[in-house]
């Protein structure tokens, strides 16, 4: 905890500097660049790549959350119960699909660019959220649900006032897993010509320029770690509040 309070702002500052003022790091990256080659990636602004990267992840994750939670609510209602085993099978099987393969398979269907990346991120992001939301909604404390019925809440009120709030922390864990996977997979989106931070790493790999690889890797890694950490904090706060 104490390490976290010190490290978190430090890493955030480092990330901001790397994205906004990459030139500052020239002395650090220079030893890794090939002789005479560029040290700092300048073909595109790192800020715009970051925004595009995070935008893709945010859009895909938001859509995935909306769809996954809606589906999870539907299959945990009495009317949708027949689909519960099937949806478990789909999540189990779906998660064995490698993210890279999902991305690559989206290309033949959708062509190159942001489109296939978005679809792959969305499809792959659905599963952890859906799985966690189902677990959360189907393992609510029976005494609480009994009490909710007992005090006369109707089904809609039970869902909104009791089930969803109680299911939130576990669902959020699913969203966190999904966002972290999406951040990583979006990097690969650059192999199908989406504008993401993966572009920097791939440029480095193609030109044997380790400085680019380090630069891109560091930025993406920091984003992932900080976003992961922020979501963990959010979950911890929610769990404290619901006493889970």
């Amino acid at each position: 905890m104490r390490i976290g309070t010190f490290l978190r702002p430090a890493l955030t500052l480092l990330l901001l500097a790397l994205v906004l003022r990459p030139v500052w790091f020239t002395p650090f990256f220079a030893p890794f660049a090939p002789a005479g080659g560029p040290v700092i990636y300048e073909r595109a602004s790192l800020l715009s790549l970051s925004i595009s990267h995070l935008g893709l992840v945010a859009a895909a994750s938001a859509a995935a959350t909306l769809v996954a939670v809606t589906l999870a609510i539907l299959v945990t209602r009495p009317a949708g119960a027949a689909f519960l085993p099937l949806s478990r099978t789909i999540t189990n099987m779906g998660q064995t699909f490698p993210p890279v393969a999902v991305l690559a398979l989206a290309v033949p269907a959708l062509g190159f660019g942001a489109g296939p990346t978005l679809v792959a991120l969305f499809l792959y992001g659905l599963l952890p959220i859906f799985e966690n939301a189902i677990v959360a909604l189907s393992t609510l404390p029976p005494a609480t649900m009994e009490a909710a019925r007992g005090i006369g809440l109707n089904r809609w009120q039970q869902l909104l006032r009791v089930e969803l709030p109680l299911a939130l922390p576990v669902t959020l864990t699913g969203i966190r897993l999904s966002v972290v996977i999406a951040l990583g997979t979006a990097t690969l989106g650059s192999t199908v010509a989406a504008r993401t931070l993966g572009e920097v790493i791939i440029a480095g790999l193609l030109t044997n320029n380790t400085a680019f690889v380090l630069q891109g890797g560091l930025i993406v890694g920091l984003f992932a770690v900080l976003i992961y950490d922020a979501l963990v904090q959010l979950e911890a706060r929610l769990v404290r509040r619901t006493g889970g």
Binding site: F32, V180, G184, T187, I201, V213, G216, G221, A224, V225
Partner: peptide, 17 residues
């Protein structure tokens, strides 16, 4: 778990140097 959050392309890339 920190290692696990590093995006795969970055991890592969960082192993190279």
């Amino acid at each position: 778990s920190f290692l696990q959050t590093i995006p795969s392309l970055a991890m592969f890339g960082l192993m190279i140097p």
